[in-house]
Simulated scan of single mutants.
Amino acid sequence: MNSYRIPEMARKYMDYDMIRQHTDLPVFPEFRTHLLYAFLSRHSSLSGYSELFSLVTSLVQIGMDTHDLVSITNNAKETKAARSRQLKVLAGDYFSSRFYYLLSHAGQIELIGILSNAICEVNRKKMNLYQKMRQLNLTADDYIKLSVEIRAQLYLAFACLMEESLRHAWPEVLGLFTRCEVLLLEIGRSESAQQYRDSWGYWHILHQASKEEGKHVQAEDPDYAKLRSIWLKYKITPQLYQMLDSCMKQLQDKLQTLESKELAKELQLIGEPFARYLSTPKALEEI
């Protein structure tokens, strides 16, 4: 079995001077991609395609994530900002197009259709999320649920291709890993006053806080000191740490039920960053 090297392979398609100099790219979907590779590598007939399938899926995900970074409005007049916006659009299109090219050259036409349908479903879920946000009709729990579904959908499409013995485990393991990933990102956002908008904490406070507090959280130019006091009052960061701890325990319990102990051990290693994060002094204090 080949060692996992998808990030290095993807860098060939992502590492361009013009992109690095003029815009930022989203974080590589490491957990989901490594997870997909681990499951596919144990397929009796598809193991030889585990690298290709994992690579193209990561490129599609990077393409969609790059498009998500494009601002909704195009008011940027300054040359550098305008160029960054244009490159995000072009880079996202380029990354997404690579999966057509690579799969067609490998004769994997069926997977092109599977991933194309998954992309449509991701976009549908995103529109559902954005509509709920605009209407302020979104609970904090719904925010996490939809965020996990959107991130996992592309990878979930491989359920029909999994080895029979792993087919039922794939959606749940993927969902738990992705939930841990989302919660880890939300913890980071909760600790930065500049990233609170439309975060888990934002939606939690809107449904739990007083009208005055809710108006302050929704303000275009809030008082960040006041905002921080509201965050502390409703224990946003501690709650997220506790949610991550609970999710990690569910994941560990699930991995113990897998028939393949070798796979369970590999998945434990993939999830090690979550465990290390929860073992830091700050995390232990919050849990």
Rank of each mutant, 00 (worst) to 15 (best):
D65L: 06
D245S: 13
W200N: 09
M9L: 15
I230M: 01
N123Q: 15
G214F: 04
F158P: 02
W200V: 06
S210Y: 00
Q194V: 12
P281G: 08
R197E: 13
T280K: 08
I62D: 04
R98T: 05
K226D: 12
G201W: 04
Y143L: 10
M127H: 07
S147D: 01
S84Y: 11
E259M: 09
A225T: 14
R32W: 09
D223A: 01
L244F: 01
K77N: 11
H67W: 07
A10G: 00
L154A: 02
T139Y: 03
T139R: 01
L267W: 07
Y202D: 07
M1P: 14
S260Q: 01
K211T: 13
K282Q: 11
A38Q: 14
E213M: 07
S71W: 08
N123K: 11
E181T: 09
M127K: 06
Y277T: 09
L263G: 04
K254A: 10
S45C: 01
K215A: 10
N137F: 00
Q242Y: 01
K132F: 04
V60P: 00
A275R: 11
S199H: 12
G48Q: 03
E30H: 15
Q131R: 10
K233V: 00
F177H: 05
M243G: 10
Y277P: 06
Y16I: 04
G92A: 09
R151G: 12
K265E: 13
R197D: 15
R42N: 01
P171C: 03
R83K: 15
Q195R: 15
E164H: 13
N123L: 09
F274Y: 03
Q268M: 14
N117F: 12
D245C: 10
D24H: 14
D221S: 12
K88I: 10
L278W: 05
Q268P: 05
K145P: 07
W231L: 14
T57C: 03
R5H: 07
G201E: 01
L263M: 08
F274G: 08
F177Y: 07
E262D: 13
W170N: 07
A38V: 08
E186K: 12
S229Q: 13
L90M: 04
A209S: 00
Y94R: 06
V56Q: 06
E286Y: 12
Y196I: 13
L115D: 11
I144P: 02
R179K: 04
V122W: 02
T66C: 00
Y49F: 10
N75T: 14
Q268C: 09
S58D: 06
S47W: 09
K88D: 12
I230D: 03
S41R: 11
V89I: 15
S58A: 13
N117E: 13
E110V: 03
L69H: 07
D141V: 08
V182T: 05
G92Q: 02
S84R: 10
E30Y: 15
P7H: 07
L154Q: 00
S246N: 10
S116H: 01
L103P: 06
Q61I: 06
R134N: 15
T237Q: 02
A140K: 05
K77G: 13
E272L: 08
Q153F: 09
T237W: 02
Q239C: 03
I205C: 13
Q153N: 04
F99D: 07
S97D: 09
K88G: 08
H67F: 04
F39M: 10
S260W: 03
V70P: 00
G63Q: 00
L69F: 08
R134E: 11
T280W: 10
